[in-house]
């Protein structure tokens, strides 16, 4: 499945919710399926400080593809992490770098990536793309 196809799938999943709270209930459930970061990486070195909620992110590069693991101390943040990882994990660096993540706007969760939310998610997306760029550079060397 391409990034766009995965995004489309998520959009369809969220389209059944009419009420905000049902959507957030689903998001909280999603958070339980985040591929968790290994305990030894859950340190300040891997912490993306967001002031309000904290996010830890790690990436592995296997056979030309990037695999993310993460965690957060807030469950709604974690639900969005799940979506981001579902879309971006297991992809080639170029795919990750070029991803627009437009689906977040369609499902009405884009506000969580606003710089004013200070929940670490915007920095997390930047960090995911940065990982991809570093791995791409490594690959070309």
């Amino acid at each position: 499945m391409t990034i766009e196809q995965t995004e489309q799938q998520i959009i369809e999943e969220f389209s059944i919710f009419e009420d905000w709270l049902d959507k957030y209930n689903y998001l909280i459930e999603c958070g339980k399926d985040v591929p968790l970061i290994d305990a030894r990486y859950k340190t300040n070195n891997y912490l993306i400080s967001g002031c309000q909620s904290r996010v830890w992110l790690h990436a592995d590069f296997i056979d030309g593809k990037v695999y993310f693991t993460a965690d957060s101390d807030a469950v709604i943040t974690k639900g969005i992490i799940y979506l981001l990882i579902r879309v971006l994990s297991g992809r080639r660096p170029d795919e990750i770098i070029g991803a627009s993540l437009a689906f977040l706007e369609v499902i009405g969760l884009k506000e969580h990536l606003s710089p004013t939310r200070s929940n670490g998610l915007l920095s997390m997306v930047k960090q995911m793309k940065l990982y991809a760029q570093v791995f791409k550079l490594k690959m070309s060397n």
């Binding site: 709270l21 957030y24 909280i28 309000q52 909620s53 469950v75 709604i76 943040t77 929940n119």
Partner: peptide
């Protein structure tokens, strides 16, 4: 034991202006 950000986010969606942090 939930994070204040979670409660604040849900309360916001229900129309309540509270502060978290």
């Amino acid at each position: 034991d939930s994070h204040p950000y979670d409660g604040g986010t849900l309360l916001d969606k229900m129309g309540f202006a509270v502060r978290t942090g």
